[in-house]
């Protein structure tokens, strides 16, 4: 639960920081500059992907694919490509950064008018999503810059040794 709470708080803080700011700039360079226990980070310390020359992906990108497809695909389409009722996240992540994504996932989003009925629920209380939100973000970040193709990643780095323990404590 501790890790889960941290996600939630992080998202809340991000929400405050982002309030009222219009974002026109592109998200930062996704290149991985460091890694800890199989989880990669960009130069600003944001979670990111790592794809080897042979196409092998980091474990988080792989788990991100699995969890995205179980929890997000029903609305946002296979491989992040969108559907008739929710936007393509491959496109959205070209202009949204980590904090934007965390805020939207935790708080939800509404665009309801005469011509539009788009509603994303708040997933802040949903462990199936919040316990994997970094992985989902990492996967979509990779998709948004075309670092990985459609479909299930064919090969991935081994599961980090503390991954299962962290997962269990988050899922409760």
């Amino acid at each position: 639960m501790t890790r889960y709470a941290r996600y939630f708080l992080a998202a809340g803080v991000a929400s405050c920081l982002m309030g009222g700011l219009a974002r026109a700039d592109k998200p930062a360079d996704p290149a991985a500059v460091s890694s800890e226990d199989g989880k990669y980070a960009d130069k600003d310390g944001r979670p990111t992907f790592n794809v080897g020359k042979d196409g092998k992906v980091d474990f988080y990108t792989y788990i991100g694919y699995v969890r995205y497809t179980a929890n997000c695909m029903h609305c946002h389409g296979p491989d992040g490509l969108g559907s008739t009722y929710a936007p393509s996240l491959v496109n959205s992540l070209k202009s949204l950064d980590y904090a934007d994504v965390m805020t939207t996932v935790a708080n939800g989003k509404k665009d309801v008018s005469e011509s539009s009925q788009l509603v994303m629920p708040s997933f802040g209380e949903n462990k199936n999503i919040m316990c994997y939100i970094d992985a989902i973000y990492i996967y979509l970040r990779a998709r948004s810059v075309d670092a990985i193709p459609r479909g299930r990643p064919q090969d991935h780095e081994p599961k980090p040794k503390d991954f299962s323990e962290t997962e269990d404590s988050c899922m409760g």
Partner: peptide, 20 residues
């Protein structure tokens, strides 16, 4: 691919990834 999921009322409760 099925996996463990936790239940929260009013939230999706799916527990598998599939591709078609």
């Amino acid at each position: 691919e099925p996996f463990r999921v936790s239940y929260t009322a009013g939230q999706p409760y799916v527990g598998a990834t599939l591709s078609m």
